[in-house]
Design a protein around this nucleic acid. Structure first.
Lengths: 213, 213
DNA sequence: CGCTGTCGTCAACACTGTTGACAACGATGT
DNA sequence: ACATCGTTGTCAACAGTGTTGACGACAGCG
């Protein structure tokens, strides 16, 4: 019986589970302790503070972004796949922005993402400076898409559809004299899944970055 | 002898000032009360809770986005200008994501932004469905750019430049064998101002959305 | 066996947003 | 002019947050 019931891995596991089940607000040090079956402050034996724990969580989530990528798919499908995975990882942890506050000097997995994306853009024929700008561009789009959809991510797909429908209704019932375009396009707003909208935007961005012949 | 010392406008003013000076973490109900010279709980006579106050703040900030737009500049400069203003407004209030949690049924100013952007895309020749997708795309990019730069926004331009330099150094000193592209492009990362990078990304996105002949 | 260092436990601190009772004050009706 | 009323600032307090320091149980080791 390993008396050490608590380890960094199990703590990170439980943290991810809590956030996935109850959302980012339902995760507190005390709820974590309860889920672990220990005193809440026992976690501080393994992590300096909550920020370090969340950094470890983001490290775990971001670790899946660049693994097992299709080798011979070409730069563009690989780029889309990496960004989709990154967006998915960010969705599971909106608080990553907090951990990201310290900037790039982060975890090894972040460097792997940067390296992978930069390589794809170089494969696409971009110079180093253009590749760096392209990297910043796709990261901004990916983070934004995740931030916008983070609130609805904890909902079921049914509830999400209902929410989209509700928003379309709001747009549709605006004053047509004041908001003609919004009313006219209301049926097309928030159509499909958030992932589909993101991929559409990403494809457009990539079209603009690397114009196809 | 101002008896009605507190009003919604002055509270919103002070809130914006505190967030601008001390960042989003330095703003609490108690610090707000101290800045107002009243008891912290007096604010609750004018706003139901902190969320409603922040909604009023976002309403104030977003109100400047669509006013006095150049009339005959063409859809593209107008779109860029609106997105730049929106990004600037979001930068001043990272917590807007919290207020935005409730989704589109928000304030009138948000509808004005949506209407303006949709009209520009219609002017560019897009159908209603394509305009809606384009709207979602530019919003995602704008929100993401603001989210990424929010952490550094409270810094002075000098400190910001130093931070950028520090990050470039981190990239430059990685293992070239493992991260060749990152090391190679390190000198081009985080170049220029964040606004310039955003406009570059936005221009690329617009190129992809509405291909120029 | 005894020692040492790790690690879970407990109480407590400073802080947050928020609420209900209380009181001062201007405005209002007769 | 007086009493009344509703608005609004004040105060104490509550539940909840992250975090710290003292305490003690336990494993491994000489």
């Amino acid at each position: 019986m390993s008396r050490a019931t608590l380890t960094r891995d199990t703590i990170v596991d439980t943290t991810i589970r809590i956030i996935a089940e109850q959302g980012t607000e339902g995760f507190t040090m005390r709820s974590l302790g309860q889920a672990l079956g220990t005193d809440p402050t026992a976690v501080y034996r393994h992590f300096r503070d909550k920020a370090e724990l969340l950094r470890a969580v983001s490290e775990r989530l971001l670790g899946t972004v660049t693994v097992d990528l299709p080798a011979d798919a070409g730069w563009r499908p690989v780029t889309v796949e990496v960004c989709r995975r990154l967006r998915s990882a960010l969705l599971n942890q909106p608080q990553l922005a907090t951990a990201l506050q310290f900037g790039p000097p982060l975890q090894p997995t972040e460097f792997a993402i940067t390296e992978t994306l930069l390589r794809q853009f170089r494969l696409a024929g971009l110079e180093q400076g253009a590749a760096a700008l392209a990297y910043h561009s796709v990261i901004e789009l990916t983070v934004g898409s995740a931030a916008i959809d983070a609130a609805l991510h904890s909902l079921s797909s049914r509830e999400r559809s209902q929410q989209y429908f509700r928003w379309r209704s709001v747009y549709a019932t605006l004053d047509p004299a004041e908001y003609p375009e919004t009313v006219g396009a209301s049926a097309h707003m928030y159509r499909g899944t958030a992932d589909e909208r993101f991929v559409h935007a990403l494809e457009a961005l990539l079209d603009g970055i690397v114009p196809s012949p």
